[in-house]
């Protein structure tokens, strides 16, 4: 984990080095910079230190949990993260909920009704969804579902501040990216387990099909799906940038996108490091969950 985080910091510093433009000018916006002011800013943020020194300083501060401050709003980067991350986390939970509900649900239907019209229909529908870019889907849902069907459905157009129903459209939009994969994976693994010996044994004992599927097969079939969900956290974070932008959600993704386009480098760095850490922690948790679901795996 440490080398990955360090690698991320080095990458962003190098990227910031080659970024076109003048960091001091970016701070003041359109007005010309006086020499005194330039000097003050360069000293304040150590802009003319060599790259290794700057990275060492940053890492040193990071160890003391100091993410630096935004050059534009002069707010602590950590405050910005604290304020935006909960929204992204909630959005991610909503997205995962839809993924599980629709992805796993449709995958199970496909498996149980293998080769039926329903199976083909589900496959096609999920492929159309995954082929539609998040931002296109979001924009269309906003206009044609939230606004045009306002009186019927009453779903909010932007933001997450109107209770649970606020999460429906953004959550679905976010989930659309991976839904096809989850559905396909669930179908495949469920089919495999349904043909395994122990399921055959269960059937032979005369258990009803419903119990065979839910009590015996499903649990095992979930393992690869859970693994995929964990691996998918990167896609979720990427999708969050787009979903948050379209739905005006004050999350880390949108904050990052804004910081990059305004060259607010400390914010870019802080959020990226944070996101990388979250990404790694979630992957670790997935490994643990994997062990819970599959008793054959034991961590010693």
């Amino acid at each position: 984990m440490v080398p990955v985080v360090f690698g991320a910091i080095v990458f962003i510093y190098i990227a910031m080095y080659i970024i076109p433009g003048d960091p001091v000018q970016s701070l003041v916006g359109e007005r010309p910079v006086t020499e005194e002011f330039r000097r003050a800013i360069i000293d304040r943020y150590g802009l003319d230190d060599p790259l290794p020194t700057r990275i060492a300083k940053y890492v040193g501060n990071l160890i003391h949990f100091d993410f630096g401050e935004s050059a534009l709003s002069r707010r602590q980067v950590w405050d910005i993260i604290k304020e935006t991350f909960p929204n992204t986390a909630r959005l991610a939970v909503a997205g995962t909920f839809f993924l599980i509900l629709l992805g796993i649900g449709s995958g199970m239907i496909s498996a149980v009704r293998r080769y039926s019209r329903l199976d083909t229909g589900v496959t096609l529908a999920t492929i159309v969804l995954v082929s539609t870019p998040v931002f296109v889907l979001g924009l269309l849902l906003q206009i044609f579902v939230a606004l045009k069907l306002k009186d019927v459905l009453g779903l909010p157009i932007t933001g997450l501040d109107q209770g649970l129903k606020s999460y429906i459209l953004p959550g679905f939009t976010l989930a659309s990216v991976s839904m096809a994969y989850i559905s396909r994976l669930q179908r495949t693994t469920l089919l495999e387990t349904l043909e395994s010996d122990y399921v055959r044994t269960a059937r032979a004992k005369g258990l009803p099909e419903r119990r065979v599927i839910f009590n015996h097969a499903w649990r095992n079939a979930l393992i690869p799906v859970v693994t995929y969900l964990g691996l998918d956290i990167g896609t979720v974070l990427g999708g969050a940038i787009l979903t948050e932008t379209v739905f005006n959600i004050n999350g880390v993704g949108r904050a990052l996108a804004i910081a990059i386009s305004t060259r607010d480098n400390q914010v870019v760095l802080g959020i990226s490091v944070f996101v990388v850490v979250i990404y790694l922690v979630v992957n670790l948790l997935v490994d643990l969950l994997y062990a819970v679901l599959d008793p054959r795996i034991r961590y010693t």
């Binding site: 991320a8 962003i12 990227a15 974070l237 996101v275």
Partner: peptide, 12 residues
């Protein structure tokens, strides 16, 4: 590289 969320890295 794999530890870096794809869209975040590409945007930067």
């Amino acid at each position: 590289f794999l530890g870096f969320p794809f869209l975040v890295g590409t945007i930067i």
